[in-house]
C-alpha cells in the first residue's frame, strides 16, 4: 500500500467511525420503539439528510473496503499488485452499486 491509498483508507475510516455509531443508535432506536418498515420508510423517504448520511456511508465503505481487499489479495494470493488493484476496484464498484441501490430504496419518494 502506498501513501495515497493509506491516506484514503485512514480518511474513510475516520469518516465511518461516527457514522457507525449513529447507524447502530438508529438500529437500537428502531427496534426498541418497535418501528415497522412503513414507519421507517415514512421517516426516510424524501429525506435529504438520511440520503446524505447513508450516501456518504456507502461511499466511505466502498473505498475503505476495496483498499483492504486489495491488500489481502496482494498479500495472501499469488495475484500481482496490479491485478489485486483491478479486482479491488471491481469489488469497490460492486459495493457502491449495491449500497446506492439500498439507499435509493429507502430515501427516494
Amino acid at each position: 500500500m502506498n501513501v495515497r491509498l493509506y491516506i484514503w483508507q485512514r480518511a474513510t475510516a475516520a469518516i465511518m467511525a461516527p457514522l457507525v455509531l449513529v447507524h447502530v443508535a438508529v438500529i437500537f432506536y428502531a427496534t426498541r420503539q418497535g418501528l415497522s418498515a412503513a414507519d421507517v420508510l415514512s421517516r426516510t423517504r424524501g429525506s435529504i439528510a438520511w440520503a446524505a448520511f447513508y450516501g456518504l456511508f456507502v461511499a466511505a465503505v466502498s473505498i475503505h473496503a476495496a483498499i483492504g481487499v486489495r491488500n489481502v489479495l496482494h498479500e495472501w494470493t499469488p495475484l500481482t499488485e496490479r491485478r489485486a488493484g483491478f479486482c479491488a476496484i471491481v469489488f469497490g464498484l460492486l459495493l457502491a452499486a449495491l449500497g446506492s441501490r439500498a439507499v435509493a430504496a429507502v430515501v427516494l419518494p
Partner: peptide, 9 residues
Amino acid sequence: VAGSGGCHA
C-alpha cells in the same frame, strides 16, 4: 518509503 514496499505496508 512511501511506495508499496514501504512503511504503509
